[in-house]
Computed example of a mutant assay.
Amino acid sequence: MSQLSFDQRSNPNARSAAEREQVLANPGFGQTFTDHMVSIDFTEGVGWHDARLEPYGPLVLDPATSVFHYAQEVFEGLKAYRQAGGSIVAFRPLANAARFNRSCARLAMPELPEEVFVESLELLVQADRDWVPTTEGHSLYLRPFTIATQVGMGVNYPSKTFRYMVIASPSASYFASGVKAVKVWLSTEYTRAAPGGTGFAKCGGNYAAAFVAQRQAVQNGCDQVVWLDAFEHRHVEEMGGMNLFFVRGDRLVTPPLTGTLLAGITRDSILTFAADLGLTAEEGKITIEEWQAGCASGEITEVFACGTAAIVTPVGSVKGADREWTIGDGTPGPVTMRVREELLGIQYGTRPDPHGWVHKIC
């Protein structure tokens, strides 16, 4: 337990069981939120204070609040899973806590003690445990975030006050009708991140800057965008919100973390448990020319993306302004599906957890 004492106040207007079940029957993703939220304030010279579990509701912020004007904020994303025996768990929350603090440090924001981060998740999930779906493949998505709350428009210094919060939303399976391979767009016009920037941080500005390229992908008949390096626009980095893996026989290869990619928790997990499946996993650079040629020769048989929301997403085809090709036969491959099933099995408790990643909440 942390040294902070959480004031806990139940929501007097919590939804009824019938209302909740109606939502859980078709939750979508990020559309409906549970009855409570966690809030903790920070003041320079005082530290973190006024920790509370309270009813979910709107925030009242001055129009000149710093976050609106200078985007000083970071967030995380992870899930709570209801396992077969009825217990509710999180997957590697300490890894999320560590990444959260790396993001905070890059954005000149106060770090949150890891034990406080985990306790805040536990409190919210325990309070809203009935919102954790029982349907196979569904989960409760958790969104911790910190925003700058100082009022004023001076750009020379970071905010001196902040608010950390956690909200939760029941989410359905990413694949509504089975696992489908996605088509991706190679973005050569826009850049997600450059060395020395905020590419490794999970901050809102990175995602806002990516929307135009994602829209371009959709306009070209693709599901997602693939980002390339900032200098040559040739080396593959990551997909929108997901890391990439290339399958070469029994080898899994993923672009290295160079400060421009998000260090995905799912990515790290796959690099670790690949050996349990008899696979070799490593980091390695790859250009779009090598990707296309590898698919043509059969050296690259599968490609998949991975992240908290989509777990493991097969990539079936690639399109760019001057090229287009198919990966394998364009359908989810056997290695991709083995990796996906192993990850889901650990998270939902149907397979062993040899690395101690599952964190029981209640």
Rank of each mutant, 00 (worst) to 15 (best):
269 S>C: 05
278 G>C: 15
179 V>Q: 10
236 V>P: 05
78 L>M: 04
282 E>G: 07
282 E>N: 06
142 L>Q: 01
351 R>N: 05
291 W>T: 06
267 R>Y: 00
64 A>K: 15
133 P>M: 02
109 M>T: 11
223 D>A: 11
146 T>E: 04
38 V>S: 05
19 E>V: 03
322 D>T: 11
360 K>Y: 02
303 V>H: 04
246 F>Q: 09
140 L>M: 00
287 T>Q: 05
142 L>K: 02
325 W>M: 03
267 R>H: 01
83 Q>V: 15
252 L>A: 12
97 A>I: 06
86 G>D: 07
243 N>K: 08
352 P>I: 00
309 A>G: 03
26 N>A: 11
96 N>M: 00
230 A>F: 11
23 V>P: 06
286 I>A: 05
1 M>A: 10
289 E>M: 11
71 A>N: 09
249 G>L: 12
289 E>T: 14
285 K>D: 14
304 F>N: 01
282 E>A: 09
249 G>Q: 14
348 Y>K: 02
198 T>N: 11
160 K>N: 11
60 V>C: 10
146 T>S: 08
100 F>G: 03
216 Q>C: 10
331 T>F: 01
189 E>D: 14
310 A>N: 01
37 M>H: 09
52 R>K: 12
23 V>A: 13
46 V>S: 07
355 H>G: 00
20 R>N: 06
45 G>R: 07
211 F>Y: 14
326 T>M: 06
60 V>M: 09
121 L>I: 09
111 E>T: 14
177 S>L: 11
238 E>K: 05
245 F>W: 14
192 R>Q: 12
150 Q>K: 14
24 L>I: 09
288 I>T: 14
342 E>A: 14
358 V>M: 02
133 P>D: 03
55 P>Q: 07
358 V>W: 00
312 V>G: 05
184 V>T: 09
173 S>F: 08
135 T>K: 05
86 G>A: 08
151 V>K: 10
334 P>R: 15
11 N>W: 06
275 A>N: 14
181 A>P: 03
126 Q>I: 04
341 E>A: 13
49 H>N: 02
330 G>M: 04
39 S>E: 15
224 Q>L: 13
325 W>D: 02
347 Q>E: 04
7 D>L: 11
174 Y>N: 13
7 D>S: 13
154 G>S: 12
259 G>E: 13
127 A>W: 01
138 H>T: 01
183 K>C: 03
225 V>I: 10
57 G>R: 04
101 N>A: 08
190 Y>C: 07
194 A>V: 12
148 A>N: 04
319 K>R: 13
19 E>P: 00
200 F>I: 05
321 A>F: 02
206 N>R: 13
54 E>G: 03
70 Y>T: 10
239 M>F: 15
131 W>K: 00
27 P>S: 06
242 M>R: 02
246 F>P: 05
37 M>V: 07
199 G>N: 04
252 L>D: 13
97 A>C: 08
119 E>D: 02
346 I>A: 03
263 A>Y: 10
78 L>T: 00
189 E>T: 12
332 P>A: 06
7 D>G: 04
319 K>P: 00
62 D>C: 12
271 L>E: 09
140 L>Q: 00
83 Q>D: 09
230 A>P: 07
226 V>C: 10
237 E>M: 07
306 C>T: 06
233 H>A: 12
354 P>K: 08
199 G>L: 08
147 I>P: 01
218 V>H: 15
316 G>R: 04
76 E>M: 02
234 R>P: 05
345 G>H: 09
157 Y>V: 15
